[in-house]
Design a protein around this nucleic acid. Sequence first.
DNA 1: CCAAAAGTGTTGAAGTTACACCCATGT
DNA 2: ACATGGGTGTAACTTCAACACTTTTGG
Lengths: 247, 247
Amino acid sequence: MEADAWSPPSVLLTVDLVILTLREGRLCVLLVERGEDPFRGMPALPGGFLSHDCEEILDAAHRELSEETALTAGYVHLEQLATYGAAGRDPRGRVVSVAHLAIAPGLPEPVAGTDASDAAWIPAESVLSGALELAFDHRRIVTDGIERARTKIESSALATAFCGELFTIAELQQVYEAVWGTELDTRNFYRKVQAVEGFIVPAGSGRKTTGGRPARLYRAGPTTVLFPPLSRPVPTAAEEDTGEKGN
Amino acid sequence: MEADAWSPPSVLLTVDLVILTLREGRLCVLLVERGEDPFRGMPALPGGFLSHDCEEILDAAHRELSEETALTAGYVHLEQLATYGAAGRDPRGRVVSVAHLAIAPGLPEPVAGTDASDAAWIPAESVLSGALELAFDHRRIVTDGIERARTKIESSALATAFCGELFTIAELQQVYEAVWGTELDTRNFYRKVQAVEGFIVPAGSGRKTTGGRPARLYRAGPTTVLFPPLSRPVPTAAEEDTGEKGN
DNA sequence: CCAAAAGTGTTGAAGTTACACCCATGT
DNA sequence: ACATGGGTGTAACTTCAACACTTTTGG
């Protein structure tokens, strides 16, 4: 844009993934232990450089996702989160990272990663509270990702991405409770969710497991925008610890 | 992350700006006519490459903003929007753009840009409707930026960024009506806005201009999150033209 | 006095919360 | 039968849209 002889600086581009899931009713994020030199041995988000010159950013995120989890790509929600490019964030030089948010149904396996030295599901609160130190600016990225999820499940069908193909309303409620860190009234939730046209649609039969009356099964419906939205309960007074309510 | 000899591909990084304002009650976006070769002569978003190796992305956005508008930097809202990096989006090579959203109070001057060949405020609907063809993927970026503004004024104090330091409630209402493309009830809006603690705070005296009872003046308050939110009226039936309601 | 815009009161409809209650299954 | 969780009804309360009405200015 200035003189002809001037040439613009180039940067290295990475994608990082905030992969969220529910394990035993708790919101968890996938972290890997870094095997390479900057921040070696420290937990970090899965991610990496673009693999070749013309790889699409979203494709790169999908590639990293399948490298880190054994997920049949169709059933995972993946969206761009934000871009982090502070000059000093990576000691190797100017590295700009396009962070993505992925939501996966609860994988039973702890996921022994193909690529990374070690991968593990870490409870979100461990990261939010600052108890666990992450490499680079990854704590900030996780915080932003969780905040995105928290606001987005209010008005979009994102919460169903935490469930498998078939789920009960109680399971869906657990998603909301885990992500928001609140408790909801089972009976009101039941109707509120069903009142949203096309959010969830019934599937055939019921199942029981938990030892009461068997619950009906649903699958995600065509609706992506929830109306009316499921609004997060207001924090009644001074209750703002690390995401959990006064326990 | 793979072999030691492999070196990751690098990309060129630009920032692009979706600068929104209100002019005569209409939502407008600032576009420049490109003077350089790719898409020369076509309208495009203001923006450009990072100026030097270690320039912060947000700083670059601020720099482009002040190059294009004569705004006293303190009074402009600026936030990251999203990153666009499709492989074929720029014929010059792999150029990744971090788009930003800026909200400015209505500038009276048509802004003869310092840097660009020509700059003009274009009504948002001209871009949304597709009537005007933009360079690169800039139409998409403008669409995303407007959508962001539309949803964000519901639950954040962003709308005040469209007004000057002092404004009347009627002026604030015009912001909502222009951005959403709907009409609102003056009297309900009046109370709803004041019911949000710390959203707007009164300033000294009143002014009249429009020839009725003079209105009280307000300034933006400390609150950034609006509770309860100002919810966008539901589209009653089949009314979804290009952002305007059936006129 | 009249027009025009600011600001206030009120009412009926709709939504939300809280909780009592019934239903269907395993043991 | 009874414990356990699924699902239904409903009354009290809150919020909201709609619109009549009063206030304050300029001409």
